[in-house]
Design a binder for these strands. Structure first.
Lengths: 237, 237
DNA sequence: CCGGATCCGAATCGATACTG
DNA sequence: CAGTATCGATTCGGATCCGG
């Protein structure tokens, strides 16, 4: 038994020993979005030391969470195994709980494509969405631009091709026209997702700005993507 | 922003910064069972250095997860705030995922009352239990003895009064008679909870030993307390 | 005994530089 | 691109000590 073991025979301990080290779950978070190269991960986690990234990837492979896959021509990607993908419910629970503690960003906090992708997956409510018309949202938040396609009770999150707001200058508006609602927002979007403001209030307070589409769709957006600020503990304990 | 910050504006990061440090979630795990004194926590986590326990408790208070409550006469207990209790779904997800990676215990791994209590909460299936007759189980696993009272779709886990198997010598069998099934088991109980063996097979392989009650109830136990070895990832991503 | 605080060696982490 | 090597800064772990 390693000196760094928690020394208990318990599922929680086993989990923490496999994915509880610093940075490990953030690597998993990004890999839940899709396979990533070493450099992608490094870019998505700018403050991770490269030696730690390397070490964690080896540990995650040893734990059977991550797999190394050679790419067709050259290079390679890391991807989650089935066991790694089974961490998704845990990741969503973590993001949901953390949402309730988010304040305003520190001056040099960054926002990444993968973290926002998982954030929208976290707040997505399939049951509610299934009762609403299919809708496509385009959300710009800082340097990140995402396309959210709600289709029945399922959600697909993709980066907007061409990046944030650099389209349109040469007439390539095909995709933008695709979205029913195009939003530009900042951290204040939390208020909308937490249900602390209505769509109209969010626009009024300039928490979000509607670039295209019917502003009334903002309330549908808020119903679809919602996190309770004070999640109720599970019953039956 | 601290040098130890992950530097991202993201719910997962916020959560990890509040409860992602070493030992923090194990403290929360034990507090999910009930309020605990400093010495209780130290006992339940024998390998935690006392300075770390002290530091974590302060951090968890700063994060609004834990509260310090003076006791009636003297002493004090730590207890979870509402926000701390909201970590229960996360904890169950962690325990469930970790269950699938548990092997046999290391020679000096220990088992504690609180970790086993959370383990049974993790594997409890309210929906299944509601379809089955109410049942009371008494489970002895190493030094730990628990009483599991399944009542409709809810579960109550309590330590067996008097501790493990020291009752009976003086005729105090009132509580034991209360249980419909009394089990003594070791790590092999995993096989039963994972559904890899039937109740009869578990007895045959000596994974569990039935001290009292109808051995046929073992299958009801396995239906009630069950963890899928390969949990399916959530859909809709 | 309870609830910590203090001290110190060992291990880990973070930042930067460097290599196939 | 995909890491390894190195080294100072932190944190962790283990033990001891202290006040009530």
């Amino acid at each position: 038994m390693g000196a760094r073991s928690y020394g208990q025979y318990c599922g929680v301990v086993t989990a923490l020993e496999q994915v509880g080290e610093r940075w490990a779950l953030l690597i998993v978070r990004d890999l839940l979005v899709g396979p990533r190269r070493y450099g992608d991960l490094k870019n998505g986690l700018p403050r991770i030391p490269t030696n730690i990234l390397s070490k964690r990837l080896r540990e995650l492979q040893d734990a059977g969470v991550v797999r190394r896959v050679p790419l067709a021509h050259r290079g390679l990607v890391y991807e989650l195994t089935d066991r790694g993908r089974a961490l998704e419910p845990l990741m969503l629970a973590l993001g949901e709980w953390g949402f309730g503690a988010m304040g305003d960003p520190d001056p040099d906090d960054i926002v990444t494509l993968d973290s926002m992708t998982m954030a929208f997956r976290t707040s997505f409510r399939p049951g509610v969405a299934a009762e609403l018309p299919d809708t496509r949202y385009e959300v710009h938040i800082g340097p990140v631009a995402l396309n959210l396609a709600v289709d029945g009770g399922s959600l697909r999150v993709r980066p907007v091709a061409g990046g944030p707001l650099v389209r349109g200058v040469d007439g390539d508006l095909a995709e933008e026209a695709d979205a029913d609602l195009v939003l530009v927002c900042g951290p204040g979007i939390r208020e909308l997702i937490a249900g602390r403001v209505t769509g109209a209030e969010a626009i009024e307070a300039e928490l979000v700005s509607v670039q295209a589409g019917d502003p009334a769709l903002l309330d549908r957006f808020a119903q679809t993507f919602h996190v309770d600020s004070a999640p109720a503990p599970a019953t039956g304990g």
